[in-house]
Design a protein around this nucleic acid. Structure first.
Lengths: 200, 200
DNA sequence: GTCTATATACAGATAGAC
DNA sequence: GTCTATCTGTATATAGAC
């Protein structure tokens, strides 16, 4: 347990950063090795192939989201949890304006790669499922389209912020999304109040 | 003027298709040459470098949008023109579900390439400017955020349709966008009616 | 576990005959 | 203008010493 090397972690961290900045294909193993301060030949002790590295990066990102969303469970109101979700891209809006959404841009690249489509969509799928679950818990009759709109809005905002190189686009569109979220919740309440067939 | 070879056009067409399916970096000149039925060495007579090819593809796409939007001028109502815009992704929704938005996915890839950011964003910038102009002509006080929301919604929908491999996501989100468009127009009218400082 | 040196493959680009 | 053969660089991956 003790002197276990941290080289694998250093490689993963370097890979995550470089893949976000340069894309997967443009990032060479030599780039990653140099950034992690590990000799090139040693990389293969930790990862059999380059594909193994990107798989580890994606799975780490997915796990990170699972952990984060777990923390958000402390909020009893799903609306508050969804606002936590919106806060994510706002926090890294500078980085998104510079290099795109780390989830969305890698998804686009990997989805064009043969035999990688499951891996490609893994993180966004997890986010989408979680978001839909929140709308479900809010008692929305049809949570799927709402969840898709929610996730699509943020992905679209990220792409546009990247296009214009303006982090403010993320903030601006997030505000519009929060307004939309409130109208959705308000409509649902008014329906529930007047609808004897609703839950409770 | 007479027997001018069509090889350049065939190469461009093949490049457009392959870049959309495989991405720019994964598409080799040999791929393009084979698909266009042109010997590899002959490609360089028409395009100095591989970067020249992708530049031509992007500029062709931008020009195509300019031509299309020009046709839409026959509609006097900007709302009708915006609906024409929405119709674009719907028409190719199967293709988007399979390979992503041809504009958005190439943008993400090129924007990570050094010295390509202007080219990368060219087509989406043209679309965004045109959309904003429509909201401006509608008399909206603040057309920029509205235009960004409009474009972001469709890009987000395309990414999600690709993620889920479901063309229906495009249709579904487009319907939500049209509803939103109508509320924007209705609000603008009610404000204009009650606002003595408005235009006219 | 770590690292140097290198094998292998392939893609962009060029030379030069026709 | 067209095409074959090939050069050159570079990236993944491996061999094998330590």
């Amino acid at each position: 347990m003790p002197p276990k090397s941290n080289k694998r972690a250093k490689l993963l961290k370097a890979a995550r950063k470089l893949i976000h900045r340069q894309g997967f294909q443009s990032t060479t193993l030599a780039d990653i090795a140099t950034a992690a301060d590990v000799p090139l030949g040693n990389v293969y002790y930790y990862f059999k192939t380059k594909d193994d590295i990107v798989r580890a990066v994606v799975e780490e990102r997915t796990q990170r989201f699972v952990d984060l969303s777990g923390q958000w469970e402390q909020h009893h109101d799903p609306v508050e949890r969804l606002k936590c979700f919106i806060q994510m891209p706002i926090t890294i809006s500078r980085s998104i304006a510079d290099h795109g959404c780390p989830v969305g841009s890698l998804l686009q690249e990997l989805s064009k790669k043969p035999d990688s489509s499951d891996l490609a969509t893994q993180t966004l799928q997890a986010q989408l499922n979680w978001v839909i679950e929140q709308f479900h818990q809010l008692g929305c009759d049809d949570p799927e389209p709402l969840g898709r709109h929610f996730v699509a809005s943020l992905q679209g905002a990220s792409l546009l912020a990247n296009t214009l190189n303006q982090p403010s686009v993320i903030i601006e569109q997030s505000e519009q999304l929060i307004q939309w979220l409130h109208t959705v919740v308000d409509n649902r309440l008014s329906i529930k109040v007047g609808d004897a067939t609703g839950p409770e």
